[in-house]
Amino acid sequence: MADLRCSAIFASYDRRAVLAGVDLLVPEGTLTAILGSSGSGKTTLLRVVMGFVAPDSGVVSVGERVVADGGRINIAPDKRAIGYVAQEGALFPHLTVAANVGFGLPRSERKTRQRVEEALDLVGLERGYAERLPQELSGGEQRRVALARALAPRPAAVLLDEPFSGLDAALRAETRAAVLGALAATGATAILVTHDQAEALSTGREVAVLRDGRLVQTAAPAVLYRGPIDLDVARFVGEAVVVAGEARGGAVTCVLGTLAVRGEAKDGPVQVMIRPEQIRLAPTSNGRVAARVVGHSFYGAETELHLELMDGSASAVVARTFDDGGVQIGDQTSVVVEGPVAVYPA
């Protein structure tokens, strides 16, 4: 495995610019999740790295090896040693699991079966699966075989295109664990492309947000979630409560009180971004912000409360909490904000 680097990638499709200068470094042995809505260019980026789309300009390299450089170098997909797990697996329907996994191996290794079995072990599939046909597998098993197939020839890097889409919640968790386990065990350098925030945040060592053909922020999941670079990214990676405020000396004053600011902020008018789970209910007392409950949704692990502040501004606020204190719609309560908040110039 080696690190994977994209520098200043520009690419277009049907003469429409799709990628407008993508810079990305996936360090050796780590997984970077690329998060983008549909139309953001994530499929094109994947295809540029794979070699199915030539970039207009920019360099893709794996380790020391340049695999694409504008129009000058464009190594064929089969010569790049970059594994690929397509959406829904794309298993060859005419081949057994073993033949699928062995597809990319040299003939000698295909015969001995040793590498095929290693790869199946890696993704947690029993040897008994080897002779089955793809149609006899569940959706989750198909994804695992697809990963085993991609890993078998020991690629320099692996690309995963929405590997868990279309799986139900339980199967998704199980498949996700198996896939991440196999990637970690092989020390794979990997890119996972998804439009699902939770999937990106929970799988990537780093998460890169792709918007309008540009990576607007690449950061560790917690950094991205708590300190997004702008309000659009904030809203894209999770739910956000945004209120107006005034910053002064590392703190911000707004309808929810005076709150600590994450990072640095210039004094002056700002917009304050608070995550719903930072907002907690508290017993009503003087000095606390009073609110009335206007909406109440129970999700099991947490309860989402829609609140209306009673300070005259009637600002709408969403809180996510484990302990809702038994409040019901129409009740009055108080709210407090925990932890530092992010601010953006107004």
């Binding site: 199915f52 089969d78 060859f92 197939r149 020839p153």
Partner: peptide, 15 residues
């Protein structure tokens, strides 16, 4: 599905 042939390419098979 074009992804079938693309998968084959990514596994080192020529066009």
């Amino acid at each position: 599905e074009p992804s079938l042939e693309e998968s084959a390419r990514s596994l080192g098979s020529g066009p």
